[in-house]
Design a protein around this nucleic acid. Structure first.
Lengths: 191, 191, 191, 191
DNA sequence: AATGAATGAGAATTCATTCAT
DNA sequence: AATGAATGAATTCTCATTCAT
């Protein structure tokens, strides 16, 4: 090995891909990504064996980043609502602040080019969140469905919410809070 | 007119496109669609001037179909909850029964190839639904956000729900009802 | 024969072809010509069995028209110069007044799609002109080359001249006369 | 640089294009040119961004070559006639010896796909020739028309002449000299 | 005869991937 | 490892021509 693969270059490619995919869709040419990343066309393929591989790795990276963001400072001992709110706020703030990443993530989430394996692996780290469901929602609407439904629901609500936040930045906070209210009211039982 | 343009052929192409796009994504080749529709490659372009045109027309058709499905037998005079439930049930049943259409619709909804104009036109018929928000939710979480947020929220929840229904058909009804409960609880104020 | 082929339609197609080819080149679609002519796409092919056939017929028609123009009022008994001048003036005036025809003619003249047979037939009527060479140029530069060279030379000079006349209409007469002077001086011997 | 863009390949493509265009017209497929040049279909587009670009570059190359041929050994201090004759002989000899180039050049000259800019650039090097007009022709037929008319006239006469030379090689020299005589007599004043 | 929809063989590009340097 | 030229399969769209009406 004359030169070891550079972590910097790998990251540059992933960052460029995030931007380019957000702007042009997943059909964007790898050459465009390479140029944006400041590497040669061929170099992209020494870091990612194929475009599909790049797509999957990018998916995993974004998922991992999102997880970190959501879990940083997680108030493990707070009340259920506080913890759910924490996760929601972080998620939504991240999406609002990182439009590229959010858009690309949304596209990757829908693409058949992201493998089932990547999806499984990408969801793995969200155990804590999935666990929230089991905890206090035993008598709520979600009492007898798959725990993953909980996460999917939150993701869907958050996506819509972020979309509106991006569209009307002046009302961003209102959407953030309305979204949370809908979510929280929705999953808990009325008394 | 020598041979009038055949409505059947147009529909065959749209139906084929729905299937092919669901299976292969919007990047699927027009040639594949033509073959599936039983027409020559070139014929597709006598009905749709370009692939983008096909995409937009398909979007409009699916939206129109969905609207009809949701609005058939609409209990205009029933209580708010009954009406919202009606819409939800129809939506979700349609999606569960028409996986192709649902998947393609989801992709079209995200694609930048569907024009703003098509989106506007496609949403036009959903006024009744958007109006639901104004009606009884004056004090709920959605009291001071755009009315379109209501529809987007419902769409997002329904999509997730249909996805799980398709994945676990045995529990389809459970998801359908859980989804509605989350939605209804979410948008109404707890007392 | 339910309806006899209409000479009008045939002429409309030829006229449309002249305009369209002048504007878009010989690669123009037959459908465009049909539309311009006010007939259906297929109708063009009942008058001309193929696009090549149309090209060849158009070539012949334009050649014939040009011949008529040049030969009308031909001063058969005038001096050589007067006759050559007559031909030149008519040619050049026709080209200046019929830009479409001139341009299309120029393209047809260069196209390999116009058959040798059409060329032969198209040139047939120009015997009088070719004959001019034999007459008085026995001692000039053209004394021992093919007589057709004479006609080709005049055509080439006239084409260039018409091009400049079209480009600078204000100086049209100047070019017309300069062109003739060059031609006449060129083919006659200096004394 | 990994593999520098090869000047050889670029030239092979231009040479192939010259041959193919001469044989089949400018409508010839780029794939045919690529095959003739011994490169892959796509390679043509790494050297020329589009077919139009190829057409324009080819035009410029042929013009440049023609200029070099005409200007090599130019007898700058000889009499006017000697200089005009030099140019004529070189032009005509080049065309007779390079039928492909001559035919393709003629087609490019007429094509609306060659831009005004290319034409301007292509003509730039012919200043010496255009200058010939000003010099001794002040009292001839061309005394009060655009100087470019001079060059166009020579080009037209030379084209016709080369055509006949190609058609009757045995009389090539006769046509060459007859053509020059017509040209020279034509542009100079009779005394 | 007239119409214009239907056909399918190309045409010019594009692009993921390979490979010589 | 890095580069970017080379590759050729695949794609969208065009168009001369045919043929059902």
């Amino acid at each position: 090995m004359a030169r070891p693969k550079s972590e910097d270059k790998r990251n540059a490619i992933l960052a460029a891909a995030t931007r380019v995919f957000a702007d042009e869709g997943l059909a964007a040419a790898t050459a465009r990504i390479a140029k944006q990343a400041g590497v040669a066309d061929g170099t992209l393929f020494t870091y990612f064996s194929s475009k599909d591989e790049l797509l999957n790795q990018l998916y995993l990276q974004l998922k991992a980043e999102l997880r970190e963001v959501m879990m940083a400072d997680y108030p493990r001992d707070a009340a259920l609502e506080a913890r759910v709110r924490h996760v929601w706020q972080r998620y939504v703030a991240w999406g609002a602040a990182n439009a590229h990443k959010r858009k690309t993530m949304a596209q990757l989430g829908m693409s058949e080019r992201v493998s089932a394996e990547s999806r499984a692996q990408g969801s793995a780290g969200f155990a804590d969140i999935t666990a929230l469901q089991a905890e206090g929602l035993g008598t709520g609407p979600l009492c007898d469905v798959q725990p993953t439904y909980f996460g999917a629901l939150m993701g869907a609500l958050a996506d819509v919410t972020m979309e509106f936040m991006a569209r009307e930045p002046a009302s961003a906070d209102r959407y953030r809070d309305a979204g949370f209210a809908v979510f929280w009211n929705g999953i808990t039982t009325k008394t």
